[in-house]
Simulated assay, not measured.
Amino acid sequence: MNIVEYPDRDMLAIDLASTLAGELDGHLFHNDTASLAVAGGSTTGPIFDDLCAADLPWDRVHVLPTDERWVPNSDPRSNEKLIRERLLVNRAAKARYLPLHTPAEQPEDVLPELEAVIAPELPLSVLLLGMGEDMHTASLFPGAPGLEAALDKHAPILSVLKPQTQPETRISLSARVLDGALSKHLVIYGSKKREALMRAMSLPPEEAPIQAVLSETVIHWAE
């Protein structure tokens, strides 16, 4: 595990956006398209603000969230809403978006439909993750109903989780899909999350889901 430290969060966002753009460009040099899976939330927003201006053939980049709350894409808590407003703008407006939500009462009703769109994108070209102080990543929450299936090495592409600590049902890329990305980056801010990451190193994925995706992941940290 490689930890890159930055003097502040602004520098982290600028540098990491440049790194992600370079990796996407490199992948596109050898492939027709590239897939970019990104976490939502306040952690990644500033990175999106810089990445969206990168000079890339964005029409060949396919963007998808690592996970999604089962809410309409107009909901303020929707990851799709954040990604569309802060990443799929400027030059990146030409990218193709692959949603993890479609109108349906329950995510289980449309999993095959959603997985069929994602399957051709695997393995993911570039992955950008965040982590909570509880050591969850994407929507893989410790103790959540559905976590054991999501961590299984034979898990399907998508998993449905119903964390008791969260108000909505979640849909998430399974651990094997996240861990299988060709390039993986994790962003954490502050001493508490860094301490949580260090604790996760000695815990099983059932207790610290981030553990399932740390192999060969570059950690980006700023206070």
Rank of each mutant, 00 (worst) to 15 (best):
M1V: 15
V4D: 06
P7R: 14
R9N: 04
R9L: 03
D10A: 08
M11I: 13
A13M: 11
D15M: 12
L20F: 11
A21H: 03
D25S: 13
N31P: 02
N31T: 14
T43A: 07
G45W: 13
D49H: 13
D55H: 11
L56E: 05
V63I: 06
L64S: 00
E68H: 00
R69H: 10
P76G: 06
P76N: 07
P76L: 05
P76Y: 08
S78Q: 05
E80W: 10
L82C: 02
I83H: 02
E85K: 11
R91S: 09
R91A: 10
A92C: 03
A93N: 12
R96P: 00
L100E: 02
H101Q: 10
E105Q: 14
L111H: 05
A116T: 14
I118D: 00
L124M: 07
L128S: 01
M131G: 01
M131Y: 07
M131C: 04
G132Q: 11
E133I: 06
A138L: 08
A138Q: 07
L140D: 08
L140S: 02
L140Y: 11
P142C: 02
P145H: 08
A149I: 05
D152G: 08
A155Q: 01
A155L: 04
L161V: 04
Q166G: 07
R170A: 07
S172E: 10
L173M: 09
V177Q: 03
L178M: 06
G180R: 11
A181H: 03
A181G: 03
K184Q: 11
K184H: 04
V187M: 05
I188Q: 02
A196W: 00
L197S: 08
L197A: 12
M198T: 12
M201E: 12
M201L: 13
E207W: 04
E207D: 12
A208T: 10
A208C: 09
I219Y: 00
E223R: 15
